[in-house]
Design a binder for these strands. Structure first.
Lengths: 126, 126
DNA sequence: ACTTAAAATGATAATAGGTATCAATTATTT
DNA sequence: AAATAATTGATACCTATTATCATTTTAAGT
């Protein structure tokens, strides 16, 4: 993968904004932070895909209509609030050994898995 | 919800074809099985949404590009083969008490959750 | 530095999944 | 049977994402 200024901005912005943004949302933030730098939306989509395929960032599927992206590639889970639609990290040990257990029981060669919780977040309950 | 012949066909076809189809795929099957019956694609989308919202069937998100639907609403998980793209049920007890555990640790009001595994299925390994 | 080949970009057309609209039809209630 | 509400089919529309392509930038070799 060759260097590109745009890719650096995209990755850096994703890392500094841990909000699990969609491509469109990330584009918005990039524009705000770099009003002069003229990065096209196709470049954002392209690079997010490339970075995710390379395992440098993670694609989060199963949330609303669009794909979201996460700079954190360590094992963790997500919760999306049905009301405010915000995505929260769940960094707790709630599914210990689930890959091994499932591999053993099913015989599938599991390479990846995701857990998505839905409900109402603390802020929206009150 | 009023009765409709179309909805009955849609639900019945979904139940008899436990292949976790997308709306388009289900439409295909319906057309094959009922060449005369002229059900529009909008009706399929509309009814799958309505049935899922009513809890009669379940929407599976996080699989490829499109939403898939499952007539089985009991707690179970899914595995999608990255090669053949088939969706398999995982009906094993691999995440016991995960809602309680996560609710307790996070304080979110969790109403639902999904686990999606990815990898290569037995058929595609050989 | 200069040249060349490969990779990346920005603009935008194209595609795909899904929803909204609306007049016509079908169910339900009285 | 008449009135009201729900549903349908056709299709226009919207939104997320990818493809295309000419141009620019990067990396490597001389």
């Amino acid at each position: 993968m060759n260097y590109s200024r745009q890719r650096e901005v995209i990755l850096d912005t994703l890392e500094r904004n841990a909000i699990h943004p969609t491509a469109e949302k990330l584009m918005e933030v990039i524009k705000e932070e770099n009003p002069d730098s003229n990065i096209g939306i196709a470049t954002v989509y392209r690079n997010l895909r490339k970075l995710a395929d390379a395992g440098i960032i993670k694609r989060i599927e199963g949330l609303e209509d669009a794909e979201h992206f996460d700079h954190n590639t360590h094992t963790h889970y997500h919760f999306i609030c049905n009301k405010c639609k915000k995505v929260f990290d769940i960094d707790e040990d709630i599914a210990d050994g689930i890959i091994e257990k499932t591999t053993q029981k099913t015989g599938f060669a599991i390479t990846d898995y995701d857990i998505v919780f839905k409900g109402i977040c603390k802020n929206c309950i009150d």
